[in-house]
Amino acid sequence: MTDEPLLRGSALSKFYGSRVGCENVSFDLWPGEVLAVVGESGSGKTTLLNCLSTRLLPSSGTASYRMRDGQFRELYRMSEAERRFLMRTDWGFVHQNPADGLRMTVSAGANVGERLMAVGDRHYGKIRATAVDWLSRVEIDEDRIDDEPRAFSGGMRQRLQIARNLVTGPRLVFMDEPTGGLDVSVQARLLDLLRGLVTDLGLAAIVVTHDLAVARLLSQRMMVMKDGHVVESGLTDRVLDDPRAPYTQLLVSSILQV
């Protein structure tokens, strides 16, 4: 691991009028590290994720990202063209609802190939070969390559969305409730797949989830949010096994046992 973080957020705040989205959030994310942001709904975790991925501009605070050349760039000072380029090359964004992140009316192969074509790939055979490779890595049969995602199950759509995001070899992936809305067995396989991919590719990821089990499986570190503030952060195992903040203790003790 290098001695410099990949993404650095400092004093990020987002207000919706007089309401607080998130307030004064600071953290460092290191290369290859998975950071989970947990909390109940309305706690500001998605607002934070949207600010970091530049889908929203924060009211105050800064975030800087270490580009491939090793230089830190302040995200909110970059031009829109640069941000969008970063978004489709070095970053990925996995939405909770796959329909938001996929083009539902074009084939699975084209969904995976779109990012390649967006960065200038103009060889059909190579694009298709890459698409086939990625579909197999996310456990989608090769003969489904020309089917539209509309014909896919929820779990397949989510896996396709992941393939579409990872095809350009990003270094940082944002995930918003990646396993939300999936039944438990599908969820387990998806988590398994994600864990494998994150380790194999050395991805850094920020995973927003309300599911502490997902956080425990995927992440090394976690931040617990409540009412827009970070109430506790630390190593995932430490936070879950020895919660210090009262709210975290409540959250951990609320997990249903079977």
């Binding site: 829109e80 969008r84 192969g109 190939g113 779109e114 990012r115 074509m117 103009r122 059909y124």
Partner: peptide, 22 residues
């Protein structure tokens, strides 16, 4: 309009890709 402004034309090739795939 934004795609024209930023010269993001990958999508146009998605259409041609679909043609060849089908």
């Amino acid at each position: 309009r934004k795609m024209h402004a930023l010269e993001e034309y990958g999508l146009m090739h998605v259409k041609l890709y679909e043609d060849i795939a089908r």
